[in-house]
């Protein structure tokens, strides 16, 4: 499944942040997004995941193909690690949780309540959810926050395995994951004026 984004303009709080974004993400490829704080990385990723509508432009190939992992882990502290994963596995109606537990070394923690995990362990649990969704395109927003070196390489291995299996990944990150990935700097798409008639443009 190829993700194609054409001439996309996105807004945060009714104010356009990025315009004219074009990108193509083919199966087996990874794309790393760079850009200063506030440039609109999160907004772009949320738009691709279908959580907010674009101002204009088209997104093709994103329908029920994207597994999104944002800033928040989406973990219920009173459920155990395996309960958390099992829940998402059955919501997405996909794979079993065993491969996910193995990939992120969560086997020892499986029966612990998620609330007792450290921040890095929680992050690993959140990332392992990507595997149980069975979705081909991973859209990741700063996935390595609070991960230690070992966990980062665990994550990079999981991404490589995903790519080798024909999946693709769009990652907003500032650290080098050692992937052979294209890098896209969002700085050149920064919205310059506000010509967008649909939003506040009418009022100027």
């Amino acid at each position: 499944m190829t993700l194609t984004v054409t001439d996309l303009t996105i807004a945060r709080g009714g104010i356009p942040v990025l315009q004219g974004v074009n990108l193509v993400l083919r199966p087996g490829a990874a794309l790393v997004l760079r850009g200063s704080n506030g440039i609109g990385k999160t907004t772009l990723l949320r738009t691709l995941a279908g959580l907010q509508p674009p101002v204009c432009g088209t997104i093709r190939g994103a329908d029920e193909t994207i597994a999104y992992a944002g800033h928040f882990d989406g973990i219920k502290p009173t459920l155990t690690v395996s309960e958390n994963l099992t829940f998402w596995a059955s919501v997405f109606g996909a794979n079993g949780i065993q491969p996910a537990l193995d990939a992120f070394d969560l086997q020892q923690l499986a029966m612990r309540p998620a609330g007792s995990l450290s921040a890095g362990q929680k992050r690993r649990l959140a990332l392992s959810r990507l595997l149980v969704t069975g979705r081909p395109i991973w859209v990741l927003d700063e996935p390595t926050v609070s991960l230690d070196v070992a966990a980062v390489s665990m994550f990079a291995a999981a991404v490589r395995a995903h790519l080798a299996g024909g999946g693709s990944a769009l990652i907003a990150t500032h650290i080098d994951l050692g992937l052979s990935a294209e890098v896209l700097d969002l700085g050149r798409f920064r919205a310059k004026t506000r010509p967008v008639a649909d939003f506040d443009g009418d009022f100027l």
Binding site: G14, I15, A191, K192, T193, R194, D200, G201, F203, L204
Partner: peptide
Amino acid sequence: EIRARRFRALLARERAGA
């Protein structure tokens, strides 16, 4: 209300440094 929205839009443009 329209003027208030206009004010907000102008501020946003200013912040964006256009």
